[in-house]
Write a protein that binds this DNA or RNA. Structure first.
Lengths: 353, 353
DNA sequence: TTGTATGCGTTATCAG
DNA sequence: CTGATAACGCATACAA
């Protein structure tokens, strides 16, 4: 098979005895080109198997219709749904998505930011790495008017777009839900005070809800996880279940943690929700699979991805580059999804029978 | 804030009174440039905040260090792990990964293939859309010597790289495992005869295993799913559980289906594995979460991603372009993961007590 | 060891 | 409505 050299607008121009500029314009339905020519050009382009070279166009116009996505990992359900949302929206406007995984490493994040810049992405969507404590590596985007949107794990002080949920309110709602189920001794697992501090916010909501309902804050019931993993969840759960008496409610900051708690409880013969009601966070697929189903807080991953991508595309269109005017924060809604793991009423009914 | 114009090798050249070619070479440690110059150039490049323009380099050299990934969706655990593997390997060799989701649509797949080509990706990794029946849209890559690797759902007749598991053997193993557990009436769910026919292969393995162990093939026990979803799984499971007697074993072609079967069984008061042993496929996270744990077949997603990326990178390096010599098929291993859902022996023991 | 010149494929500007 | 030409930033062949 022959090495088909790429067909260029040059080739088309030659074939039709037209100038390359005419071809270029015809291909984009420029209004100064006659319909006849447009049709003719498109037809032969098709025939010759012409495929535009995005690189050349990008180099020339200094814009690429590419969105860079920089996230910790693609394998967490929340993040893969986020990507999905980004990709769907991008696709609609003919944008391409470049993905990089920081694996929660600051070092990698810095490198990848550079790489995205190097690729002249039109915009960047980022959820910060756990390790990240400063955001100077994103300055290059801001400085060059490349829209930058942080999602979910966002920096506190950085004037750029943010798409988030209200973690405080979500934490409050989750806790309130448990209180409404009759819990009065509610434990909470949280994760190290961090830069993107969404866990801190959830914890704040938890504490506020307790206060508002005149329940005591018991430091014994608040455990700081080293990392948000199944194993850490088991450890912390065991610690809680060693208490006398054990807590009657648990707000876990993620469904994996909630699952680990449910399974640890099972193993120890502790009944969920009878003895302890549990609520998770994220609405990951596993939360519906496990028995009992885990009550959880919805985390609209795909919507967030779409919103983030839309912000970028919108800002690119209206190239208004209003430099450093305040960038809005988009808050998406969360909801309590009450399922079996927190349904004390039902289990009370069952007992009553 | 000023519109920082991008720093180019031109700027560096000017500052150091050197030619751009010298800068270009120095930046890549070209051997004809003196160490002193290299050091000097790199230092000022750093100082000036130079970031190479990938587009220009790509246009010039007609190669981009970019791997295009075209898959049905990123949200399935298998596929997000696949991406992860690709990304990790790509990252190591400084390749960038572009991701597109076909959503199992042939139409989108065709468009996206064009878009990848338009972006002049260096190589392509693809898992075919369900709908896809022909692969002419990939010819553009083959014709232009762009390495093309199909993964998992691969076309049957296309001389290009393939990274797969041996679905026949995996199906055989799964069935054999059930037989070894004492099952003699094993059901199998499969999915429509398709182009990438991995389900067909699994079914073939299932049938062969039955034959080899002198078990009858009962068409009643083989159900064709319209799609591999939870809902379809429930439907099919109910159909099986309506039989008299119900099957004593079930080989599901995916963990979601296995989960749906387990839960349907539970709902109907059918004991797993006592009354029916179940084995799934993929080793998705849910398979370990559900109670009972689901026995499954490992599907080395991340490894497959890494293997695919390595093939591309290797082929790009040794630009040997041995045009149409046979492209190898890489088979990765699968294993039976025996867990609770198929452990008849344990449940027998339990009965014996 | 370094410099000069050119082209990669497009698009925008200006001219016709 | 169409054409000629320059420019985007880099890498290479060739010259010095």
């Amino acid at each position: 098979m022959e090495e088909n050299k790429h067909v260029t607008i040059y080739d088309i121009a030659e074939r039709l005895n037209l100038a390359t500029s005419t071809i270029s314009r015809a291909l984009k339905d420029h209004h100064t080109i006659s319909d006849k020519t447009i049709k003719k050009v498109k037809k032969t382009a098709e025939e010759m198997g012409f495929v535009p070279n995005t690189l050349a166009a990008g180099l020339r116009g200094n814009k690429t219709k590419t969105i860079g996505v920089l996230i910790p990992t693609v394998t967490q359900p929340f993040l893969s749904s986020l990507i999905s949302g980004i990709e769907i929206t991008a696709q609609k406007s003919d944008y391409t998505v470049i993905i990089m995984q920081s694996h929660d490493s600051y070092f990698e994040e810095v490198n990848m930011a550079k790489s995205l810049y190097s690729n002249r992405v039109s915009g960047v969507i980022c959820s910060l790495a756990m390790e990240t404590r400063d955001t100077s590596h994103f300055q290059q985007f801001s400085n060059n008017n490349i829209p930058l949107v942080f999602v979910d794990r966002v920096p506190k002080d950085y004037n750029t777009f943010r798409v988030v949920i209200d973690n405080y309110t979500a934490g409050y709602k989750a806790t309130k839900h448990l209180i409404e189920q009759g819990c009065i001794r509610i434990a909470h697992l949280t994760a190290g005070s961090e830069f993107g501090n969404l866990y801190n916010e959830r914890k704040r909501g938890y504490i506020e809800a307790l206060k508002d309902h005149n329940l005591p804050i018991d430091e014994e019931l608040i455990i700081n996880l080293k990392s948000v993993t199944y194993e850490e969840g088991v450890k912390a759960s065991n610690q809680l279940f060693d208490l006398e008496p054990i807590p009657d409610g648990l707000f876990a900051p993620g469904d994996i943690i909630a699952v680990s708690a449910v399974q640890t409880a099972k193993k120890r013969g502790i009944k969920v929700p009878d003895e302890i009601a549990i609520i998770g966070f994220n609405n990951d697929p596993i939360s519906q699979i496990i028995d009992p189903n885990i009550s959880t807080i919805t985390h609209p991953a795909e919507k967030m991805g779409k919103a983030a991508a839309e912000i970028i595309i919108k800002n690119l269109k209206s190239a208004k580059s209003d430099e450093d005017d305040a960038k809005e924060i988009t808050f998406l809604n969360t909801e309590v999804l009450a399922r079996e793991s927190s349904d004390k009423n039902k289990s009370l009914e069952a007992t009553a029978k």
